[in-house]
Nucleic acid binder design. Structure first.
Lengths: 202, 202
DNA sequence: TCTTGATTTGACCATCTGGTCAAACTCACG
DNA sequence: CGTGAGTTTGACCAGATGGTCAAATCAAGA
């Protein structure tokens, strides 16, 4: 256990390597399906050495989740009250889709956690996420009231965006099994763009 | 190991109890996160007794998955060439949503498997599922050619239906954390109905 | 009732897994 | 260089876990 002073060069390097390896392992096997040994091997450390940097398997997992939650919610944060409503939403959708493409491991990490009842992030969901969603759905409702976008249930609109975009990362095997060699994200971008334009154009 | 004769009354009862318990356990903890002891306890049998009916933990899981795949694909099978295109599709969407509501454990069982790369059903995906989807998307394309529904990428249309409907079962915790006491499925049905009408009306 | 196959179980085993610890080694800095 | 803090590791442990087995119990037909 390194002291609480500023982290040394080696500490920075090793903690980063561990988190990177843990993201790989946890996202493809879930928490229970991953072993400390796997993470140690993948990060090039011995098991006791890994446990010198993190007190437990759970601590690594927790740090990963809380560290990534911010990244995950950033696009929604950026939904801008002053932009053009339809374009703001389409841009949010596009960013979420891009995140599925560029950060599929992160998406699957959360998916694993959620499918199994989110035992470790239940709190963050009903507090941080809930608050952010409430704020942004209020904005959506305002736009609907002003006739700037079509009126639909704002929560379900939000769910639909998450479902449609994260599907490509979370269930990538299935998507690829169906599409074969075709690039999923090319078709997906056009598809969701069309879909939300038709849905939301007043 | 019961012989290969017709199953006795007790065999039927116990195998059913085991599969029911296994569905509970596997769907909420994933394969690796579930223990034989948990399944045994939940089905009211001792561990050795459970292993008298199934040769291994993996065997139970495999039997569950393959037994449920049929149920899972049935609604798509029923998509009828001779019905009204838009109504056929909306009815498919409605049935899938209903399945999320009534069979959430089954949905999460598959979700768990898919998120982790589908190690145990990869074959079924690229064979049975792929074949069925190809058949039905051909039908969709025909309907689009005839101008009966709007033209969109048929594979992505299919993905969107799966994503939107299964989201409510697979990520139920998140949905409930946002919606609070509101019934998810009421709003969902109206929402997806509106969405697909707007998307597909030519 | 008796017999035979089906069912159930307590005791047991090998392996895996998260985690510990003391000893050894390395590094930066005075 | 020498020294003390930071880093690494081999050996080890306890509990969990999937699975086995011989012996005991049960159930149904002759």
């Amino acid at each position: 256990m390194p002291s609480d002073r500023a982290p040394t060069r080696i500490q920075k390097k090793n903690r980063a390597a561990i988190l990177e390896a843990a993201l790989n392992v946890f996202s493809s096997h879930g928490f229970r399906g991953s072993t400390v040994d796997q993470i140690a091997t993948e990060s090039g450390l011995s098991k006791p050495n890994l446990l010198y940097y993190f007190p437990s398997k759970e601590a690594i997992h927790t740090e990963l989740l809380s560290g990534l939650l911010e990244t995950w919610l950033a696009p929604l944060h950026d939904l801008d009250e002053n932009g053009d409503p339809l374009e703001e939403l389409l841009s949010y959708v596009r960013r979420k889709l891009q995140m599925s493409q560029e950060l599929p491991r992160e998406s699957r990490l959360f998916a694993n956690e959620l499918v199994q009842g989110a035992p470790r992030i239940h709190e963050a969901l009903s507090q941080d996420l809930k608050a952010l969603v409430d704020e942004k759905t209020a904005l959506l409702t305002k736009w609907m009231d002003q006739g700037k976008i079509a009126r639909v249930h704002p929560y379900h609109l939000m769910f639909s965006i998450w479902a449609l975009t994260q599907h490509y990362a979370d269930f990538e095997v299935q998507v690829r099994a169906i599409l074969g060699d075709e690039d999923p994200f090319e078709g997906a971008e056009t598809f969701v763009d069309t879909l939300y334009r038709k849905l939301l154009t007043p």
